[in-house]
Simulated scan of single mutants.
Amino acid sequence: MTTYEEQIQEELSRWKRKMLKRPSMTGRYAKKVQGKLNELVPNKVHEVVSTSVRNMVQATIIGSDFTAKYRPVLEGSLEERETRIDEVIAKYKKTAAAEGAGTGAGGILLGLADFPLLLGIKMNLLFEVASNYGFDVRDYRERLFLLHVFQLAFSKDEKRRLVFERVEVWEETLDQFPNRKEYLKEVDWKTFQLEYRDYIDLPKMLQLIPGFGAIVGATANYRFLDLLGETAKQCYRMRLLHEHSLQKQ
C-alpha cells in the first residue's frame, strides 16, 4: 500500500516538472500581448497595485500585523495537518470569491479597492498554512519564505524558474540574504509588483466592468487563492521531505 509520504512525493514530483517547464510559444506570445495590455491599463491601476504590493511586503517583513495572530501548530501527522490546511485553503477561497464578487459589481472604484483587500486575504492564507505546517512565522526568515512562495505563485516563465530554484534549496538561499533592514532597502519593488500585476492584469481589467465584473471578480479571486494554496502546500512539502531525508542520513 502506498504511504501518504509516497503519495505526496509523487504529487510533488509532478509539480516540480511543471515549475521547471520551459516557456511555450503560446506563453511567449502571451507575454507580448500582456505588454500591449499594460499600455492600456490606466496609471491609477498601476499606482494602486504598486503601492499595495509594497505595503504588503513591508507588513510581511515587519510582521506585526500577522505574527500576533499565528503560532506554530505542532500536533498531528503530516496527513492530519494537510487535512486542516485543505480546510483553511477552502475557507480563504470562499472569502476571496465573495470579496471579488462584491467589489467587481461596483465597477472601477470598488474594483481598485479589490487589490489591497485581495493581497491581505492571500497573505493571511500563507501565514495560516505556514503555522499549520508547524513553522514559526515570528521568525523573520519564515516570512521571507512566504514572500518567495507568493512570488512563485504569481510569476511567469523564466522568473518562476528562478524563484523555484531559490525555494528548492531554501537553507542555502537564506545564507545569501542580508539582515531585515537591509533587505527592505534592496527589494526590487518594481520587478516584484510588475510580475504580480502582469499575472493578474487581464482578469482584473475585466473585473472593472460593472455587472460583468462581479462574475469575473469571484471566479478570478477563487482561482488565485486556489493557485496560491497549492503552491504553498508544495513548497512546504518540499521543505519537510528534504528535512526528513536529512534526518534519515
Score class of each variant (00 low, 15 high):
residue 122 K to P: 00
residue 174 L to K: 12
residue 174 L to I: 11
residue 129 V to R: 02
residue 122 K to S: 14
residue 177 F to D: 08
residue 97 A to H: 07
residue 134 G to C: 11
residue 90 A to L: 06
residue 161 R to F: 08
residue 103 T to P: 02
residue 178 P to A: 05
residue 80 E to W: 08
residue 97 A to Y: 01
residue 77 S to H: 04
residue 112 L to Y: 11
residue 117 L to G: 07
residue 164 F to N: 01
residue 121 I to C: 04
residue 118 L to T: 13
residue 129 V to I: 15
residue 91 K to L: 08
residue 93 K to S: 03
residue 171 E to W: 06
residue 96 A to D: 02
residue 108 I to H: 08
residue 176 Q to H: 12
residue 170 W to S: 03
residue 105 A to Q: 05
residue 176 Q to V: 05
residue 86 D to G: 04
residue 161 R to M: 13
residue 172 E to Q: 15
residue 83 T to D: 12
residue 172 E to A: 14
residue 126 L to N: 02
residue 79 E to R: 14
residue 98 A to V: 09
residue 124 N to S: 10
residue 166 R to Y: 06
residue 131 S to V: 02
residue 132 N to C: 06
residue 169 V to G: 08
residue 145 F to K: 14
residue 93 K to N: 00
residue 117 L to N: 11
residue 143 R to P: 08
residue 171 E to I: 08
residue 76 G to E: 05
residue 110 L to T: 15
residue 89 I to A: 03
residue 169 V to F: 12
residue 146 L to C: 11
residue 101 A to G: 06
residue 137 V to L: 02
residue 143 R to I: 09
residue 174 L to Q: 13
residue 86 D to K: 10
residue 119 L to N: 14
residue 92 Y to A: 00
residue 123 M to K: 11
residue 78 L to M: 14
residue 154 F to W: 15
residue 111 G to L: 06
residue 137 V to S: 13
residue 120 G to R: 06
residue 97 A to Q: 08
residue 168 E to G: 00
residue 79 E to W: 09
residue 107 G to V: 05
residue 76 G to P: 04
residue 167 V to E: 06
residue 81 R to I: 01
residue 147 L to F: 07
residue 163 V to Y: 04
residue 97 A to R: 08
residue 105 A to K: 05
residue 125 L to T: 00
residue 150 F to E: 03
residue 89 I to N: 00
residue 83 T to N: 09
residue 84 R to C: 01
residue 127 F to H: 12
residue 124 N to G: 04
residue 124 N to K: 14
residue 119 L to G: 10
residue 134 G to W: 07
